[in-house]
Each structure stands twice: as structure tokens, then as C-alpha cells.
Amino acid sequence: MKPLCIAILFILSPLCALCADWDLGQNGNVDLYGFQSCGYDEHNRLAWQIAGRKASVRGPLTTIEGCELVFFHDQNKQNTQETAIIKPDQSGKVRISLKAAACDFNYAMGEIKSDQPIVIDLGDDVDISGVGFDVDLTRHVILLRSTVKLKLKIDKKTAKTLKTGSFK
């Protein structure tokens, strides 16, 4: 019986690692599959969420493969400029996603860095891509280091209807 239990535990142990909680604040040396982590704002609302296919925890730094970072913005958050008009859905959150092949995640500092290409999805009309990025999770700032490319789609209909007269 004992060898059977040991064998069963040995087989099930990787499965347990998949659904285990790991405190990234403590230094460790662990490889996690199906990694997912999130952060909350001052009002305990979900602010950001990061997920990856595989995460290698080496001390304070976590290397995530196939990472996807999602920012959630609440309607009650301050809008510093008049142009920042946010009309959220029922849940009160607007989602902005970032995808990269790999990144280094520092949970204690709230920073994500990478030299890999990144794609930022802001909807159907705005696409951003670049190589190398730095993300500050506390200030909600994304920095692309090189070869930045933005594709902006403009609806000609709205431009025609709103245009009252051309300059002559």
C-alpha cells in the first residue's frame, strides 16, 4: 500500500503544482505552469492581471513565457485630461491587453521588463507594436524602447459629417 501511495503522490504532485498558490514576495526557485497573478488598486478593485504559459521564479524575479498583461480601468478613476473620456461597460472596467513572448516580472517593485517584441491591443481602431518594453504597474505607464509603430484607423464618415467647412 505504501509504495502505491507514494506512486500516486508522485504522479499527482505536478498536478498540484499547477493549481497551487505561490507567494511571489518570498524568494524561491520554482517553475510554474499556467501562471496567473493580479493586482488591486486602493479601493480593492482589480487593476491589472498577468498570465503566462510558464513562469520561472528565481528569487524576486519571475520570467514568464507567453505572457499577457491586462489593465482594467474603472470609471471612477481620475481622468487628468478632458480628452480621457472613458465610458465603461456595466462592470465599470475598460480592458487594455499587452502580449509578448517573454518578460521579467518583479512583483515587489511592480515592474515588468522585456527585450522581446510586444503588441498592445486597444481595440479595433488602435494597434501598437514595438520591441522592448517597460511597464510600471503602479503608475500605469507603458514604455516601448524601439521600433514603435502605431496604426490608427480613422472613420471617414464621422469626419465628413462633423466637418463644417474647409479653410480657404
Binding site: F71, H73, K77, Q78, N79, T80, Q81, T83, A84, I96, I120, I128, G130, H140, V141, I142, L143, L144, R145, S146, T147, V148, K149, L150, K151, L152, K153, I154, D155, K156
Partner: peptide, 17 residues
């Protein structure tokens, strides 16, 4: 729909603003 392509060496995006 018309498309504008913007390219640069460096970008900084403020999500809040």
C-alpha cells in the same frame, strides 16, 4: 476608413490619461 501609420524610436503611454 482611412489609416494613419505612426512610427518612432520610443513611446511612452499613460493609460490613465
Amino acid at each position: 476608413q482611412d489609416e494613419l501609420v505612426v512610427s518612432a524610436d520610443r513611446m511612452e503611454m499613460q493609460l490613465d490619461g
